[in-house]
């Protein structure tokens, strides 16, 4: 059975697109045929993060309006032949996505793909609503920071009341917490909310913590999902997250401060 995953947060800039690109690549690398869809109509960016911006011909809205077939619009990833990208349209028409149209495209994708990752736009407007509406699983991307945690909580409320599963009284969406841009050193100094703090507030199952890492910007600069940077901490953290999502038991590696003794001795920052 195909599964639809929404990567959502409410707040912008917390790492939704980085996460969507990484986990879609991770799932495909693990041998599952995966599609990743950009729902941010008007402000598409997934294509840039995936490094396929110059290969976009048709987009999601073209498929919904039947101006192109799904196969024409899907872009096969250059690094992994089990991964396909469906870019968002750059139209300024806010109503370009319709619930009926999105549902139709997802149904068609489900016939051929194991995982469909929906990269939600920020906010709680139509694009964000449609990205989560058909989801089976939700990855709630949160930064250890007050506005992000609050917006995540708001998003959880929407997932549990406004989704298709909620409306049709089906099993609720499985919700997972992904804490990104985490600095164990700052948590230790009492300057940042800890994993436990965020979990206390949101009561969500923790899928993984992504440490604040230079590799994320390097990856987006070059248009390769950070999970392919296997030496980087963020890349490894995303690989763990994909493994945990697939049911493997992996210890959390990036929650504690691993800095050397001497650095700690002098309160290294």
């Amino acid at each position: 059975m195909a599964r639809v995953i929404v990567v959502t947060s409410g707040k912008g800039g917390v790492g939704k697109t980085t996460t969507s690109a990484a986990i879609a690549m991770g799932l495909a690398k693990r041998g599952h045929k995966t599609a990743v869809i950009d729902f941010d109509v008007g402000l598409r960016n997934l294509d840039l993060i995936m490094g396929c911006e110059r290969r976009v011909v048709y987009d999601f809205v073209n498929v919904i309006n039947e101006e192109a077939t799904l196969n024409q619009a899907l872009i096969r990833d250059k690094n992994c032949n089990l991964l396909y990208i469906l870019p968002a349209s750059q139209t300024r028409d806010k109503d370009a996505l319709s619930q009926e149209g999105v549902g139709r495209v997802l149904e068609e994708l489900k016939k051929d793909f194991k995982y469909i990752v929906c990269d939600s736009p920020a906010g709680i407007e139509k694009g964000a609503h449609l990205a989560m509406y058909f989801a089976d699983d939700a990855f709630v991307v949160t930064n250890p920071e007050v506005s992000s945690v609050r917006d995540s909580d708001r998003m959880l409320g929407i997932l549990s009341s406004k989704s298709r599963r909620a409306e049709q009284n089906e099993e609720p969406i499985n919700e997972f917490l992904l804490l990104t841009r985490y600095s164990p050193e700052r948590v230790k100094l009492g300057e940042m909310l800890s994993v436990e703090d965020v979990q206390d507030i949101l009561s969500l199952h923790l899928l993984g913590v992504i440490p604040e890492s230079k590799s994320v910007l390097n990856a987006s600069n070059s248009g390769t999902p950070v999970i392919l940077d296997e030496k980087s901490d963020a890349g490894q953290a995303y690989a763990d997250i994909v493994a945990r999502y697939l049911g493997e038991d992996r210890p959390h590696r990036f929650i504690d401060d691993k800095k050397g003794f001497f650095r700690n001795l002098f309160g290294g920052k």
């Binding site: 920071e145 007050v146 945690v149 609050r150 909580d153 948590v187 100094l189 009492g190 300057e191 940042m192 909310l193 800890s194 703090d197 206390d200 507030i201 700690n264 001795l265 002098f266 309160g267 290294g268």
Partner: peptide, 25 residues
């Protein structure tokens, strides 16, 4: 760390953040 030990103890901003969030949420 040793340096932390000498710093004057004050309420951490993280615990302030948590308290504010718990009430708000």
């Amino acid at each position: 760390s040793l340096l932390d030990y000498f710093k004057t103890s004050k309420v951490s901003t993280a615990s302030l953040a948590k308290e504010r969030l718990q009430i708000l949420v």
